[in-house]
Design a protein around this nucleic acid. Structure first.
Lengths: 349, 349
DNA sequence: TTTAGCACTCAAAGAAGTAGAGTGCTAACA
DNA sequence: TGTTAGCACTCTACTTCTTTGAGTGCTAAA
């Protein structure tokens, strides 16, 4: 769909103004605020065209225009000016990532808070994918009363643990033996490179402990399932409530009830279709329940490997230019912070 | 403050009715719905007394009465009938705790969801206190690139881990040595029973690795700080939004912004002053910001030792009888579920 | 001591009127 | 032919006024 440059200017003005004020935009306002050198009447004519083409719509006859989803899409793809973070904003982010985080979870949580604070949207941050790393250490710790804890440490600094039930005949020594065999065999392997032959070797070496191995391997298999152990940090909901579109409690309620389901959040973050920052506007989100929202998401990576996603969810009328810049900037910073953390050379965290 | 039995009956009726309808209660309503055998006029006289005594108040002259905080307190202490959970509700809870949970975190999170669902309040669940257990296993795992991970496994099934930076001169073998010494010395100790002499012994035995020991001990010391590693699960906010008192967005916003601060939640849960279920009504909560809410909290325990708290937060006009029963019932069930889990004899989880 | 009766109060809901922002159309103009 | 001034028209949002009815307190009688 082609738009001549005057129509583009007008559409840009409408969207900019609407994002700013959340009020339908009239021709007079545009003529006054945006020096396009044409009269309100001309603008009205152009607006009628834009409406017919589906880029803007009218809430009712005597109101101004608001952008349609299609209008936002055109804006994001062609019209939007890149937003330059203010020095203050940049400082805020940089500072966050230079200070020492106690652990990855906290780092991700703070990332979400910052995202939300800067964008006035809710933030969603996924924890790094376990399966992206390779096993570094496997330990079975005897806890007494027929229980043991299996601890998996991955080389990317993630960790997984699970209680398992063991026969009381098993001693701490047995567990140590099993641990050391598992370590010797599996250490350095990624989940994908564990082959059936390797498993067989382990079983041969530990025939006596077949039962425990079954349990351990079940956990390993589980840790392989993508998304199984992902935690998702949701934050800054209250930042979103300051947006006028959420003055209606019913909307807030349905939104909240959805966002408290981790599985839904995971599916939202999975909607990344291209490298870099992805923008999903309204109905473009493959989730019927939140089609009156937009989403800006991206993937963070370590060593060139994408290992998790993050993003924000907000009203369709969000400041896309700013949100995209913020998400982009924060993704880069988070990536390099994790890089330092996982790949070494870094600070103690 | 003494109340004759008729005043008590009337106060009970007012509060019951108000909790149910969220509307100021008039004398006619009480005469009609609650067969007290007296006329509205008599009830009005008694209400005037109750108001003077501070148990109820009037939003404006031509409205009915609503309970004051003092009224609620009297109700909770003296008037309230015990709420008997319905078979359905009991089933729901029992079922939750008989099914196998993947880990403690999930168990606590589900506990919160259930609490919230049954009470229509927000739920707050604290993770078990680390310091309640004793060290079972300490492992330093080399991750390459000058980093290692310290893993602390406690006998109560909790776990803590942290990345530390190590000099590149240190080998995996060194870490294994350190691990085994730490294990030998600290295993079985609670955080409180680690004495200075013990630390000294370790230093003597591992003089070469003084630097790493410093780091490790810093982490140990940190894990000792009460509350430092506590996670708090907040849930079911949307359940609370169905209460009419939260139809005002501003209230929701301030509440949300508060509840997203973990430290505040921790301080709320710390306001337990007696064994069993604690009820804090309005201003009784030592937090200025949420004085228009009430809180029902309790402590769960393992082996007779309190190891964490949980509770709900909701409008002052909450169904105290039901909420108290639910919190009590769930606390017991959570305690015994954890008991099975930590103390063994239990299912695999 | 209880209660019927009554005048009074006041928030909430409805009705009516007003203001004003915005539109589309027409006709004149460059 | 594209642009613009002018104008009648539309429709929401706001204000003001009125009505309604639930509820009270007081008084006097039972």
């Amino acid at each position: 769909m082609e738009l001549n440059s005057r129509k583009q200017e007008i559409l840009l003005a409408i969207i900019t103004e609407y994002i700013d004020t959340a009020e339908p935009v009239g021709s007079r306002t545009i003529a006054r605020k945006y020096k396009l050198g044409i009269s309100p009447a001309t603008i009205r004519n152009e607006m009628a065209d834009l409406e017919e083409m589906g880029f803007i719509e009218q809430p009712h006859t005597s109101a101004g225009r608001i952008p349609s989803e299609r209008g936002y899409r055109y804006y994001v793809d062609y019209l939007m000016h890149k937003y330059q973070l203010s020095p203050d904003e940049e400082d805020l982010i940089r500072q966050e990532y230079t200070s020492k985080a106690r652990d990855i979870g906290l780092l991700l949580q703070r990332t979400g808070q910052l995202l939300s604070q800067l964008t006035h949207c809710a933030s969603v941050v996924q924890s790094p994918k376990m399966e992206a790393g390779s096993y570094k250490h496997i330990q079975l710790v005897e806890l007494g009363m027929g229980r043991a804890m299996l601890v998996l440490v991955m080389d990317n600094g993630t960790i997984q643990h699970r209680l398992i039930e063991i026969p009381s005949s098993i001693t701490g020594g047995d567990l140590a033996t099993i641990s050391s065999v598992l370590n010797a065999k599996l250490s350095g392997h990624t989940i994908e490179t564990i082959k059936f032959t390797l498993i067989k070797e382990i079983y041969l070496e530990l025939t006596r402990h077949r039962h425990i191995l079954d349990l351990v391997l079940e956990v390993l298999r589980y840790s392989l399932t993508p998304g199984a152990e992902d935690k998702i940090y949701l934050g800054g909901l209250f930042n979103m409530l300051s947006q006028p579109e959420f003055h209606n409690i019913e909307k807030v309620k349905t939104l909240l009830s959805l966002l408290e389901q981790e599985s839904l959040l995971a599916s939202l973050l999975a909607q990344i279709s291209k490298p870099g920052v992805n923008v999903r506007i309204g109905g473009e989100i493959s989730c019927r329940a939140i089609q009156d929202c937009s989403m800006v998401i991206a993937t963070y990576e370590v060593g060139g490997q994408p290992i998790g996603s993050l993003g924000v969810l907000g009203p369709i009328r969000m400041d896309y230019a700013k949100v995209i810049s913020v998400v982009d900037y924060m993704t880069r910073h988070l990536s390099s912070a994790l890089e330092r953390l996982f790949r070494g050379g870094g600070n103690q965290i």
